[in-house]
Amino acid sequence: MTALLLPRIDQTHDAANASGALQPIRTEREIMQDGGIDFTIRWVSSLERKDSDRLSAALRRDPDFDPFLPPDPDLTVGPLGDKHLAVLNKFPVIARHLLIVTRDFVSQTLPLDVADFTALAQVMSELGGLGFYNGGTEAGASQRHKHLQWIPEAARGAKLSAFTHGLPEELPPGSTTVRDDLPWRHCFARLPTAVGSNAEDLGIAFHTAFVRACDALGLPSARDPMPPYNLLTGNGWLVVIPRSREHCEKISVNALGFAGGLFVPRPELIDTIRTIGPLKLLTSVGLAR
């Protein structure tokens, strides 16, 4: 994609919103703190009945339906290299939520490769923000077609910096570490600076960091299918989290949970999160250390 990405995202967003191709889900939110980490809990606004209907439509999708083959042209931002397209999420909870989709069908359980990370790096080298991946249904993937995801990082919302605080900044790129106070299995890998970097070099660096993090966790990073896991990247770090299941007490958790972003379809489930505690909830869908 040769044109600047953010204006193209906004142009596609505005046109798709006007035509009805984009169907955002409006939410309310609450900040909940656990272990010194702020978690943003979102739920569908009770004032917006149409958004509840949109959420129901998204959850009722035929599991054999592939919305990315081909993607809706009204939601398609443009190419990211030869193998990927940038496509807006049709039912976004977060504005400018971008999907990085393989042009041909590739299973979501296949290992991420250099081309996948290079496409992600094209986005992050220009825009920063938060990249993430749900490796399999147990990790929160809602589609079988391989797609990474990106959202802008906001002051109030999911952000990896809430979990990288205190990690050794002086580690050279490719080095791995853990945060001792996080109760689930994970591995962080240091990355070179994303913003302004060459996307191809950065994609190789992302992939190297991914393989090293997987090796540290005993995850087979080249096996088909891979065991379920989440990946997040931002703020100079990449983290891999093995997963054991998608739900805890009817609450579905995807990668954004491990960046402090949780979503519930009904407001009464906020009390469930409050009772369990966000850290314990995340540990229950991951693997306890």
Rank of each mutant, 00 (worst) to 15 (best):
N89S: 07
K50D: 14
A141G: 07
E28F: 08
A57I: 13
R29W: 11
D62C: 13
D82I: 09
D116G: 11
D53L: 15
L88K: 00
G81H: 05
T109M: 06
L110T: 15
Q122I: 05
D104S: 11
L69N: 12
P111W: 01
L99T: 03
L112R: 01
L75R: 02
A139D: 02
M32F: 14
T40C: 10
D38K: 01
Q33N: 12
S46F: 07
T118R: 07
L120Q: 02
D74N: 13
M124H: 06
V101Y: 02
G135R: 03
G129A: 08
S52I: 10
T76L: 11
M32Q: 15
P79W: 04
S107C: 15
G140H: 03
F132Y: 09
D62W: 09
E138R: 10
D72K: 07
I41E: 02
A119E: 03
P63K: 08
E28S: 12
L127V: 11
D51I: 10
P63G: 10
D72N: 14
T102K: 05
L120E: 01
V93C: 07
L110Q: 11
Q108D: 08
Y133E: 02
L69D: 15
G135I: 06
D66L: 12
G81V: 09
L99G: 02
P70H: 08
L127H: 04
T40I: 13
D72E: 11
T137P: 15
T27E: 06
N89D: 10
M32G: 05
I94D: 00
A115L: 08
